[in-house]
Amino acid sequence: MTTTTISRTRQRMTKKVLVILGLLAGAAFAGFPVLWMLAISFKSNTEIFEYPPRLVTESFSFDAYVTILTDPEKVRFFVNSYVVSLSVTAFTLVVAILAAYAFSRFEFRFKRPLNMIIVSVQAVPPITLLIPYFGLMVTLGLYNTYPGLILTYMVFTLPYAIIMMTGYFNTLPRELDEAVRVDGAGSMTALWRILVPISVPGIVSVGVYTFMIAWNEYLFALTLTKTQDMRTVPIGIQLLMGQHSYEWNEMMAMSILGSVPVLILFLFFQRYFIGGLTSGSVKS
């Protein structure tokens, strides 16, 4: 009896050790490159490829960050990214909430085909749209402007946002908003006064995800902007990479500064983020 219990406990211990070793190995795989990025951003450029490499050196300093943050041209990249990403998030949420309301609460003739289109356009490759966009944006006078980028990003954020918001509204009982409508209030009141306030968790996760897509976008930012003062952070990082002398510490500092908004959003809204993500992509 006792011997089996002991061997059980021992087996459990072995298993636990294996799981922890596995977790540590995975953490090294995922985290080491990020740790290295952080370490390099605090080094002076002469020490970056020193041999043997060290994580922390005597020259630890914030110089690379200061260089980036005092360069008006680079600060402009950040301003552009914030303007574009926040606008995309705000507009996407409003437009998606309206559409999701219709999909969730009304029966209408083209509901299924429209829904089908919204699901399938998510698979349209960005590169396919790129060539006509170039001409289209020039024609519409939106080439190298904020609205051009904002509208473009909404094409990619809306389908997902609508699917997720519809899913969220569907989980809320119809009686809630219909009671208000029966009492004579319009649909708009029912939507914005009743449904939206109780959908905050869903709205937050859609908002965070939308911000992240807009903040990280590269292909259209590259093609639809031309002048230095319209470039966003991902392009700024690439431009830094293209300069003849490689300032690796500055590139890493810029990369970290460029990742901070998404990292913060993620840490703060982790629960919404993961929940929203999985319900949106997997259940639709």
Binding site: V34, M37, P234, I235, I237, Q238, M241
Partner: peptide
């Protein structure tokens, strides 16, 4: 973002 991953 891809730019950060690439440069890293």
């Amino acid at each position: 973002t891809a730019a950060v991953i690439a440069v890293l």
